[in-house]
Design a protein around this nucleic acid. Structure first.
Lengths: 259, 259
DNA sequence: CTGTGTGAACTCGTTCACAGCA
DNA sequence: TGCTGTGAACGAGTTCACACAG
């Protein structure tokens, strides 16, 4: 038991659920619970118990038969698998409302992501301190890590921040028109993964990993479901008075859940 | 040809790609292009041509063999399928950075979503005008549409706003602690679909459709890919100089694309 | 001859059911 | 006995390849 698995291929579908388990496990852990069954974890995460077991079995054999899993150990193993136990210096480009929301979000802080740099082009915004970080001009991204950059390095309020490290992940929170230019600069700066909030597909080297989050897409999917709801309503003889079960996510690959 | 299909069951995977096609088609249409092949649409959307054809065939037979599709007609058909041609009054709860970003986002306006109401509990925020809408106190949500609500109705700067209509879709952009309470109130107000940005699963009637968008989840998935990138690097004999192809999305169900 | 529309093959993910260990 | 771990069955979604319409 408790044997981590040598990098067996982990399905993407599983990966997208791991952060969800983390969230649940962290809560369970805070409640002082010392063991958890796949069934319990499943209910809390709003998925099926078999799925939980299969997902976890892809990382290794962490459970104790007849008992369940140790939440603490599970958390550390999932963290390791996701690489969240390492430090991935993050750059956020575009410090408008969305950028600020991201930097200040619970997710950024609670899951150990460290914002290493903020960039914008608006003179109003450049120089502002957001989340304890000075916003730099986008041009500074091009000379990130080079000697000329030293002047701006220690401008942040936090003295224990390390100097400019190689940026690993870039987050694009700019208007759509700027996205491609920003992506090019991020790639040039050595970023290997990009999370893009701008509704625009990106071109670039094929070894760069990109994920898109498009708010209006999500809304349009909601619109679809709402349409069907209304259509279904016309058929129903009685508008059934509802029970109070759990809300699973509507046709989503990763995110879902119920607590 | 051009025969819409009577509500055949449409796969969720297809639905999540339709907004992506819309985005591409709208650009193509703006460029004055009068016809588009599945191949071209596929490249622009960053997916496979067969997938495009299969997806579209689920809505009906809109193409002309030997020629391609009419972008304008396609847009209108997809809009209809998604229900975006109807009006779904939207409520956004939580007008912090994220809420503001959402309300002002291109997606909300360009895809025809109309924000019918904004709610918050912060006295600093209540009464502010955001995106041409007055922010109401959350308590006003409980009496939405009832006679007592009339006083606040015409407070917005925009005189051609219709009166309080039944809210159809709710967007939760509050801190996690508030999410469940807000969800309960939204459901009580008659909302049928909820888009939840708070990292917390929701309980409620099973006929309410919920989709979750969790920023930190996305980041953790990025972290996973970045880990594997680094791991792969150690094996590679040569850090290959990269070509410049298109960036597909990394293991995503819906969102993806390249323009 | 070009490009759609679609059955059929295939791949990936989910669920089942139970063997095996604590 | 109880719950994990997993092969095997199933189902959803993707890709292939080709018949057929313009």
């Amino acid at each position: 038991m408790a044997r981590p698995r040598r990098s067996h291929h982990i399905p993407i579908a599983t990966v997208t659920r791991l952060p969800l388990y983390q969230r649940v496990l962290t809560e369970v852990l805070r409640a002082g619970q010392t063991t958890i069954s796949s069934e319990e974890l499943a209910v809390l995460a709003g998925v099926n118990a078999a799925k939980v077991r299969k997902d976890l079995s892809h990382l290794g054999t962490f459970g104790t038969r007849g008992t369940g899993y140790d939440p603490g150990y599970l958390v550390s193993q999932i963290d390791h698998c996701l690489g969240v136990d390492r430090d991935w210096p993050l750059a956020v480009v575009g410090v408008g409302n969305l950028g600020r929301a991201l930097v200040n979000s619970e997710g950024f802080s609670t899951r150990g992501f460290r914002v290493a740099a903020l960039f914008d082009v608006d003179p109003e915004v450049v120089g502002q301190v957001v989340g304890g970080m000075v916003v730099r001009h986008l041009d500074a991204l091009d000379r990130w890590g080079t000697p000329e950059d030293l002047d701006a390095s220690q401008a942040g309020g936090d003295p224990d921040l390390p100097g400019p490290a190689r940026l690993e992940i870039g987050v694009i929170a700019t208007p759509a028109e700027a996205a491609q230019d920003v992506a090019d600069r991020l790639v040039a700066a050595g970023v290997g993964a990009i999370l893009d909030f701008a509704p625009r597909g990106l071109r670039g080297p094929s070894d760069i990993v990109v994920r898109y989050v498009d708010l209006s897409m999500e809304l349009q999917v909601m619109s679809f479901f709402q349409s069907r709801r209304h259509a279904a309503w016309e058929d129903r003889p009685v508008p059934v008075p509802v029970p109070v079960p759990v809300l699973g996510a509507a046709g989503q690959a990763g995110s879902s859940g119920a607590a």
